[in-house]
Amino acid sequence: MILTSIIISIIYLALIWRFTYGFDKVLTFKLTDLASKTQFSILIPFRNEAKNLSSLLLSLENLNYPKHLFEIVFIDDDSTDCSAEIITQYFNKKQQKFKIIGNDRQTNSPKKDAITTAIKQAKHEWIITTDADCSLPKYWLDSFDEFIQKTKAKCIAAPVAYSKQKGFLNRFQTLDLLSLQGATIGGFGIKKPFLCNGANFGYTKTLFKTVNGFEGNTNIASGDDIFLLEKAVKKHPKNTHYLKCKHAIVKTNAQPSWSSLIEQRLRWASKASAYNNFFGKLTGLIVLLINTLIISIILLSFFGYFPLKTLFYILLIKFSIDFYLIHKTASFFNQKWVLKSFIPTFCIYPFFSVYIAFLSIFKTYKWKGREFKK
C-alpha cells in the first residue's frame, strides 16, 4: 500500500508539474489596437434566465467592437419565464440589432440543438458561444479578432472565471474553477488540449460543418464544448489555440448552494466516460486516484495501518503542487484573494470529488428544470 501510494503521488506530481510548465508556455496575449476585421455571430442559448440576464445584456451593450461586425443571436430553449420579453424590451430601447430564435430540438442535448439551430441561421463565419448568466468584458471581441488575425486560428478556447461573491462556497468553487482553468491552459501549453468552456468558445462555421458538428455526442446532454474541441484538435491541431488574454475573461456566477453545485458537477461528470481524448481520460483518472488515495490513507492512518510520516509527505506533495498551479492561475485571473480559502478547500476537495464520482455512477441529474440520465 505504501509503495502504491508513493507511485500514485509521483505520477500526480509529474502531471500537475507538466500543467504548470504548459501554463507558462502559453504566452499572455496583449492587444495592439489592430483595425477590427473579423465578423462574429454571438450565440447565446437560454432557458428561464430572467434573473440572470441584466449583467449579460449590459455587457453586450458595452462591447467596444464595431456593431456592424457582429450579430447577437439568442436561442430560446422552451423558456417558461419572461426571458424573451426582457431581452426584446432591453434591445428595442437601445436600438441594438439582435434576434431570438426557437430551439429546434432533435436530440437528447438541448444546448447542442440550440447551437446547431443557430449556426444554420448565423450570418457570419466566426461563431462565439457564451451563456445567459455571463458578463462579457468590454474588449472581448477585440481580443478574439486580433488573436484570429495574428494566429489564423480556426478554434479558440478562452478564459472563464467566477464573479467575486461573499462566502466560503463561492471561494471553494472559484478555487475549483481556477484549477480547471490552470489545467486547461497547461494542456494547450504542452500540446495536449483537452478542456475548454462553452461560456467562452469560438470556432469557424466551416470547422463546425467539416467535423459534422456534434454528431456522435448528441446522446449526452452536456459537452457542447469539449466534444467539439476534441474534433477540432483531431482535424486542425495547429489551428486550435487558447486565448490567454485578460481582456477576454468572461465572468459567470458560481452556484448558490451546495445542492445546486452537486447537480452541476454531476452534469459535468456525466460526459467524462464519453471523452475520446486519451490524455483527458488519463488526467481525470489520475486526479480521481489521488483523491481516493488520500481518503483511504487518512482512514488507514487513523486506525494505525498506515504510517503518519508517509501520509504527511503525500499530503505535502499534493498541497505544494496544487498551490503552485492555482497560484499561477489566480495571478492571471486577478483572483489571489481566494487563496485565503485554499487550506480548507484542500481538506474538503478529495471527499467532495470522490463523492461526485461515486454519485455519478447511479444518479441522474437535473439541468434547467429537466432531468437527464447519464
Rank of each mutant, 00 (worst) to 15 (best):
N197V: 04
I185M: 03
I185H: 04
K205C: 09
F201E: 04
G187Q: 02
Q181M: 15
F188P: 03
F201G: 04
N200W: 09
T184E: 15
T204K: 13
Y203E: 01
K209T: 12
T204P: 08
N197D: 14
G186E: 08
A199H: 13
Y203V: 01
K191T: 06
S179Q: 12
L195R: 07
A199E: 15
P193C: 10
K191Q: 15
F188E: 08
S179E: 11
P193M: 11
G182V: 01
T184D: 08
T206L: 04
F208E: 06
N200C: 04
Q181T: 01
P193K: 14
L195V: 08
G202Y: 00
K205W: 00
Y203K: 03
G189W: 07
F208A: 07
G202S: 15
K205G: 04
T206R: 13
I190D: 02
S179G: 13
N197T: 11
I190L: 09
L180Y: 10
A183P: 00
T204W: 07
L207E: 05
K205Q: 13
L195S: 04
L195H: 02
T206N: 15
L195K: 09
A199R: 15
T204G: 10
F188R: 06
S179K: 14
S179A: 13
L207K: 12
L195M: 13
K205E: 01
A183C: 12
F188L: 02
F194W: 10
F208T: 09
N197S: 14
T206I: 00
N197M: 10
S179F: 10
G202T: 09
G186S: 11
K209C: 05
F188A: 03
Y203W: 05
P193F: 00
F208D: 07
K191S: 15
I190G: 07
F201L: 12
L207C: 03
G198Q: 00
F194V: 07
P193R: 13
T204D: 06
L178I: 06
G198P: 04
T206A: 13
L207Q: 10
T204Y: 07
Q181P: 02
T184Q: 12
A199I: 02
G198K: 00
K205R: 14
